[in-house]
Simulated scan of single mutants.
Amino acid sequence: MATCLCSGKAKEIEPFAVLEALDIVSAEDARNQVVYRSDNSDVVVQFRKTKPKDDEHHELQSFRELIEIEQEKAKRTNAQPIAEVEKAIELLQQMLAVLTQTDKGRKLQDEYDALVVQLTEYKPILAVKLK
Rank of each mutant, 00 (worst) to 15 (best):
L92R: 13
F16M: 12
N78I: 05
N32E: 04
L60A: 00
S41F: 04
A97M: 09
K129N: 11
A79I: 09
A30N: 04
K104M: 03
Q33P: 04
C6L: 13
P15W: 07
A127G: 13
Q118S: 12
R76H: 05
A17L: 04
E72M: 03
A83I: 01
L126W: 09
L119K: 09
N40H: 12
T102V: 01
R64Q: 09
L92P: 06
D54C: 07
L108Y: 01
H58L: 13
V25C: 06
K11L: 02
A21F: 08
K11G: 02
P81S: 05
V98P: 04
A27V: 02
L92A: 14
E111P: 10
K11S: 08
D39A: 10
Q101V: 11
A17W: 00
K73D: 00
V43C: 04
I125E: 11
L130R: 03
V43L: 09
S41G: 06
P81K: 04
L92N: 11
A10E: 06
Q109N: 11
D23G: 04
G8V: 05
I82G: 00
R48G: 14
S38T: 08
V35N: 00
I67D: 06
E28G: 08
E20K: 05
F16N: 04
Q93R: 15
S7N: 10
Y122L: 12
P15T: 03
A83N: 08
P52W: 08
D110R: 02
D29E: 09
L119Y: 07
E12T: 10
T102N: 06
E14M: 08
E121P: 01
V25R: 02
A88T: 04
P15E: 02
K129T: 13
L126H: 08
R64E: 04
A21P: 05
Q61K: 12
A10R: 02
V128G: 14
P81T: 05
V98Y: 13
E70A: 10
V44T: 14
E12F: 07
R48T: 13
E72F: 06
I82Q: 01
N32S: 06
N32T: 02
E72P: 01
L91G: 00
D55H: 14
V35H: 00
L5T: 02
E86C: 06
K53F: 10
I82N: 07
L115E: 15
Y112E: 09
Q80D: 15
H57S: 02
P15Y: 06
R31S: 11
L130K: 00
V128C: 13
E72I: 05
Q71K: 15
E56A: 09
V98I: 15
T77N: 01
L115Q: 10
S62W: 13
P15D: 03
E90P: 00
L119C: 11
M1D: 06
L126C: 15
A74W: 02
H57Y: 12
N40M: 10
R48Q: 14
K107I: 11
A27W: 06
Q46G: 12
L60Q: 05
A97N: 08
M1P: 03
N32C: 08
E90A: 15
D23M: 05
L22V: 15
E59N: 05
A74V: 07
A79F: 04
Q33N: 03
L130I: 07
E111H: 12
P124Y: 08
D29K: 07
E12K: 13
L99T: 02
Q101F: 10
D29M: 05
A10L: 10
L108S: 00
D110F: 02
Q46P: 01
P15H: 01
